[in-house]
């Protein structure tokens, strides 16, 4: 189902933003990523619909990389590697 990274990737932390609404979703994702060093991995939990329509493309725009996606019902768990600033 999910894209597999070459070796197991261990997230530094998990942030579930499924209870947030725009623009707080973006703020929480940004704050969570700001707390990581480039190359470190965040597990991000997003809700299907608006969050999944908006957040992944913004992660890519900002130079981060989605390594794996696992869907659990309406929730998506994304492993996101922080990009270089």
């Amino acid at each position: 189902m999910a894209a597999q990274a070459a070796r197991p990737v261990v997230p530094v932390r998990t942030v579930d933003v499924t209870g947030s609404r725009c623009p707080m979703t973006f703020v929480r994702v940004k704050v969570a990523l700001d707390g990581l060093a480039p190359g470190e991995v965040l597990e991000l939990v997003l809700l299907e619909g608006e969050q999944m329509q908006d957040v992944p493309k913004n992660l890519k725009d900002e130079g981060h990389r989605v390594l794996a996606v696992v869907r659990k019902g309406p929730k998506y768990h994304l492993l996101v590697r922080k990009g270089e600033p």
């Binding site: 189902m1 894209a3 329509q53 992944p56």
Partner: peptide, 23 residues
């Protein structure tokens, strides 16, 4: 393609469907 399914979740129009089995 790594069959992660992000494209289908990102599409607002339902223009991308994921194949059962292969995703």
């Amino acid at each position: 393609c790594t069959a992660c399914g992000l494209c289908a979740a990102a599409c607002r129009e339902g223009a991308i469907e994921l194949a059962a089995g292969t995703n």
